[in-house]
Write a protein that binds this DNA or RNA. Structure first.
Length: 320
DNA sequence: TTGTGTTTTATTGCCTCC
DNA sequence: GGAGGCAATAAAACACAA
């Protein structure tokens, strides 16, 4: 920063702010020093008064002035109340910063709220109403805009933070949910593997569990994770996302409450169906041959299909 | 009273716009 | 090139705890 400067007035007497209509700057160290040749009529008016009446006193006088608005602020700057000696002494002292009065600030705040930018005429009018230098008004608006911007940044930051926290909480919930579902899948897989093992050990086609329980498992697992097809000729179709990378196998609930397998998205070629059967259905076919009546029992679903090759990934809808 | 942190007022240098 | 805005900064004024 430059060396300490005399604020407003002093040696050269009042003047404009170097902007906003231009001309007549008084600041000794400020680069914005302009001559008054470009003054517009409004500035000329102001300067005519301020140069003779105010100088730096514009900042001083409000301290004890009390309330007021409009021109009444301005009225009390007539230095001719004082003697010339006192005047000279006052104006040849380095000026100190003076804070604006509460009334002045309130006035400026109201003005700022209506429009946070100053046009030259408004600046002159405000300065005149408040008994300040136009430059002071300009500076106040500039600083006020800076404060406003900072506040805005803080608010934006808070908003972003809040939004981040919400998203993170959401994400954490989803992760928990995923883990829960995963362990559920593992649990069920283990259970079903055991069931399959039991089935093959006993060479029986019957499900080792009670039919009702078995049915319940199916209903629960399937309906939880599966989409329902539309427009199928079956009365009710639930398709499980069994996928081996090529095929999708569906479990269809038929009108008679029995279940059959069907391969989705097939082109219907015989080869594909045969391959599919070889891959996944031999045990079913065998079972059908061995114990046809049981397979079609309306309340019994052979759950051996659930032992189809695959790990978690086989359950396409469950894999993450 | 004094040290310290915060707020306000003002300056400076740079930039953009006309 | 001048006017005016903005960022960075200085420094006075103010608030407040010890």
């Amino acid at each position: 920063m430059a060396a300490r400067s005399f604020l407003y007035g002093g040696a050269s007497g009042g003047g404009d702010d170097g902007g906003g209509g231009g001309g007549g700057s008084v600041l000794l160290t400020n680069k914005r020093v302009h001559c008054s040749s470009s003054l517009n009529p409004v500035d000329s008016f102001f300067l005519a008064r301020s140069s003779s009446l105010q100088g730096s006193r514009s900042m001083v006088s409000f301290e004890d002035r009390g309330n007021g608005s409009g021109g009444q602020f301005f009225q009390s700057f007539d230095h001719e109340d004082n003697g010339d000696d006192e005047y000279d002494e006052y104006f040849h002292q380095p000026e100190k910063k003076r804070r604006l009065t509460a009334d002045q600030v309130r006035f400026l705040e109201e003005s700022f709220e209506s429009d946070n930018k100053l046009d030259p005429e408004r600046k002159i009018k405000l300065a005149k109403d408040l008994g300040l230098q136009p430059r002071q008004v300009a500076i106040w608006f500039q600083n006020r805009r800076a404060r406003w911007k900072n506040k805005q940044l803080e608010k934006d930051y808070d908003d972003l933070q809040e939004s981040y926290n919400k998203l993170k909480a959401n994400y954490d919930d989803l992760v928990k949910e995923k883990e829960k579902l995963k362990s559920e899948v593992h649990e069920l897989s283990d259970k079903l593997l055991l069931q399959e093992k039991g089935t093959s050990d006993s060479s029986s086609t019957k499900c080792p569990c009670e039919p009702q329980t078995c049915r319940q498992i199916l209903d629960d697992d399937v309906s939880k994770n599966v989409k329902t097809n539309n427009g199928d000729h079956h009365s009710s179709v639930k398709s499980i996302g069994f996928e081996d990378g090529v095929h999708t196998i569906s479990l269809l609930e038929r009108g008679d409450s029995s279940y059959v397998f069907e391969q989705d998205q097939s082109d219907g070629s015989v080869d594909e169906e045969e391959n599919f059967s070889k891959m996944f259905l031999p045990s079913v076919d065998e079972l059908k041959m061995e114990n046809n009546s049981e397979y079609h029992d309306s309340h019994q679903v052979n759950s051996c299909f659930l032992g189809l090759p695959g790990d978690d990934q086989a359950f396409g809808l469950w894999s993450y």
